[in-house]
Amino acid sequence: MSGTLVIDVAGLNKHFGDKHVVRDLALQVREGEILGFLGPNGSGKTTSIRMLCGLLTPDSGRGSCLGFDVLKESASIKRQVGYMTQKFSLWDDLTIRENLDFVARMFGMRKRREAVAQALEELGLAGRRDQLAGTLSGGWKQRLALASCLLHEPRLLLLDEPTAGVDPKARRDFWEEIHRLSAKGITVLVSTHYMDEAERCHQLAYIAYGVLLASGTAADVVASQKLQTCEISGAGIQGLAEALRQLPGVDQVASFGNTLHVSGTDGQRLQSSLQAFIAGRSLSMTAVAPSLEDAFIRLMQASQDQFRG
């Protein structure tokens, strides 16, 4: 991938009290890329995003965002970043139009009225522009929030779990929009818990306990875990997960409908254990490519082992 680096930070640290929330975060995102930011709850995703847009000051570290120093030039960064908070943070007691108008004023836009009118049109909310934002449904709130952070034509979008609590149709529309923006050269950093969304990203970064554990394309991340996965199916499979987990060479077992995905990093031991296990049972076993979710579960467990001792 070529293109200039929009985000280029290294060694970012943040403490809250004696809690080390983000450790030595290094992140590089190229122009027009969609970076999926993944990790368990409380892993430091939101803190990292807030540091990138100047809402939190890193305790240490260096780097640039849109060519501006993340430590010293947060005011300049804010001007060109669209930040969508995890929780709906527009004003419930302002109407849709008033919200957009306020945000446009905050960014000192010259053709404010036109921009707001156009945003309302594109949102499909022109007819409901005088409705209070607080009365919108979750999906509409999300669309309004996205529209409001696109208003000042930012070059970088920071989206913090934008699709939490949004129905599948609205999620799909949302991702179509993200890809349209990306095609226009806007860089997007989006945090999510959904695997299907992770797969829609150009690049992924996985963070746990404040540490960046893996990054690259989805294929890179899966490959980096060196997992072998076998799919086991057959009668009575539901009750077997716990027994399978105890086998040597098995690192994780996950249910997928009527099948079980059994994965391990040591391919040979996994194979031999499983073959011995299914012998005498009416089960069948096929080797499958490990999924992104398998890789993430593996990452999460490995990090738990590492940090919880």
Binding site: L55, K78, Y83, T85, F88, S89, W91, F107
Partner: peptide, 13 residues
């Protein structure tokens, strides 16, 4: 309290 402060802070105000 309403979380709108974060939005306000994200603007250049």
């Amino acid at each position: 309290e309403r979380g709108t402060f974060e939005n306000l802070l994200a603007t250049p105000a």
